[in-house]
């Protein structure tokens, strides 16, 4: 995992802006990897892609190949079996690129702390550009987190629903 060093800094945004401007027509492209959770964060990501959340309008889209992704979106505790898969996905992504952890276990293992099969989370192994915590975080919290990257508030003014479980 040593090679993953996220670089979503000023250079990232400058370089990306050169290639394509941000916005619904040129969304920030996300590649999702579940590194070994309960699947709850993935379900909330799926909910975020649907009504009433306007993920596309907010300027994000999912892709099914790391080669066309701007950002790696990681959910789930990092299992020893998935670590090389995550590394391979990262290496396949073009520069500039970033990495975001969604949910408690992607960050520090959450309820799935380090053991014989699990390395814990990304924390202390990888410099993540954004960590959205919760178990799982709600779709609105995820979207708000992503939007904070773009410096814009989430669309819609939806009422908050609790996360944390």
């Amino acid at each position: 995992m040593g090679l993953i060093r996220a670089v979503m800094n000023t250079v990232f945004w400058k370089e990306r802006q050169k290639r394509k401007p941000l916005g619904p027509r040129w969304p920030l492209l996300l590649f999702h990897v579940d590194t070994g959770g309960c699947g709850g964060c993935g379900m909330e990501l799926q909910a975020m892609t649907c009504l009433p959340y306007d993920m596309q309008g907010a300027g994000f889209g999912f892709v099914n190949s790391p080669r066309s992704a701007d950002v790696l979106l990681v959910t789930g505790a990092l299992t020893r079996t998935m670590a090389p898969v995550l590394q391979a996905a990262w290496e396949a992504m073009p520069n500039p690129k970033g990495i975001i952890s969604i949910g408690n276990c992607a960050l520090d293992g959450g309820v799935f702390s380090e053991n014989y099969a699990v390395m814990g989370g990304l924390e202390r192994r990888v410099s993540v550009d954004l960590a959205i915590t919760g178990c799982p975080p709600s779709p609105q919290e995820i979207l708000n987190g992503l939007c904070s990257l773009l410096g814009s508030a989430a669309q819609g003014g939806k009422k908050e629903t609790p996360s944390g479980g």
Partner: peptide
């Protein structure tokens, strides 16, 4: 798989 980009477990 195991990483297909979809949102299901691997």
């Amino acid at each position: 798989g195991p990483a297909t980009g979809d949102l299901a477990p691997p």
